[in-house]
Write a protein that binds this DNA or RNA. Structure first.
Lengths: 221, 221
DNA sequence: AATTGTGAAGGAGTTCACAGCC
DNA sequence: GGCTGTGAACTCCTTCACAATT
């Protein structure tokens, strides 16, 4: 049965991966087994995950690819384009402004802001860097849905407070800081240093078991 | 008791966060409560996590900050500097080459490679882009410990095969692809599109419950 | 008095295994 | 015969609650 609302967090985290995998299925239908292989998970997992969205498969056949893609997109709230602002125009912010993967998946970078006057007027991809002092105005003008935060850690909390005050409720945070925000604001944290450190642990462990370097591949979330 | 080897994955993923949090504790000791607040987790969680490394705290007092930092670093295998190569010198690869957070945490970018002749000789931070055709040679010459993969998705698997053949066992993959690698190779996947899509889900859900926009903050891993 | 370390309870996520359907 | 949907078993992770320790 479909409705018994609330999809588990772990499932939500995998739906985008299924979406990615479905993009290069040649056929019009796909089995849980085949989709699982492409997404790098267990087939039972795929079936359980998809069952949370409803009974969209056909026994003996599999899932209709196009239909499934539509259902997952709907569940993720990926309807029209999402409008994204990048706050912090350093190395990383500049690279993300031009990242092809965003427009491909429906995320349009519509503004870039920084606190350093040197950057004002710089062109990043399709937008021009504006002063962070006009934050609220820019967010309103560009109808921003979500913010990518790429400031130094030292000012990240301060900027986050401003964002919250301006009504932003979705932040993808690259600053290596645990942001304090109200509970109605959603944060996803990406810390590249942390990723490398975790990787370091597993590599180190595998190396420690000298003779047999057998280990397990480590996923993400 | 300390040893009953094997620290749970969930704990490993939090150790770097504790490390980050410990960096700006002013005092010489810290309580699980205080550390938990800084790291954004529950105090019992902190205690259980740290108990996996051994009994390094003092009842009634807390944990000695310096000592704890050393123990966590040791557990993560963060001893000397780690040598990192960036494969794929596009937008993202170039930005990561100059990312300050890496050297700060002991990750030195010692090489950059790309398949496009236009990029050969380009200076990224401290290194010069070399052709991916000399991959094996460069990895050996620079004693590379881990690779950051920032190629387009289309060639990511192909390049990963090359890396594996050259003996690389740690890959931080930014390409939106599930890489097929032997079990002795460790992969961490960072997919920026996926992060935004997950964020989109929670935002969308919160918006759907119209009148009361109360939600929960979403962590990362 | 304060705070750790941990057994036990509780919750979440995964995998199995098979009935049910095409 | 092939494949989904799902209850049940299992494993992993989190939180509670308190005895042990300084």
């Amino acid at each position: 049965m479909a409705s018994m609302r609330r999809v588990p967090d772990a499932t939500v985290a995998r739906l985008p991966v299924y979406l990615r995998a479905l993009a290069d299925v040649g056929d019009t239908t796909v089995s849980s087994e085949s989709l699982a292989a492409r997404a790098g998970v267990n087939a039972a997992q795929v079936r359980k995950d998809l069952s949370h969205l409803g009974s969209y498969g056909t026994r003996g056949v599999g899932y209709d690819v196009d239909y499934l893609v539509r259902q997952i997109n709907r569940e993720l709230g990926l309807v029209g384009d999402r409008r994204v602002a990048i706050v912090g125009a350093g190395n990383l912010g500049r690279a993300l402004a031009g990242y092809k993967g965003f427009p491909q998946r429906g995320f349009r970078v519509v503004a870039a802001l920084d606190s350093d006057p040197v950057t004002y007027g710089m062109r990043l991809g399709l937008v021009t860097v504006e002063p962070v002092s006009s934050l609220t105005e820019v967010l309103t003008r560009e109808k921003v849905d979500m913010v990518i935060l790429t400031t130094p850690a030292t000012v990240a909390q301060e900027v986050a407070d401003l964002l919250v005050a301006s009504g932003v409720t979705s932040i993808l945070n690259f600053a290596p800081t645990v942001l304090q925000v109200p509970t109605n604001v959603f944060i996803r944290q990406v810390d590249l240093g942390v990723e490398l450190q975790i990787l370091s642990y597993y590599t180190h462990q595998a190396a420690a078991s000298h003779p047999t370097p057998a280990g397990a591949s480590v996923g993400s979330t």
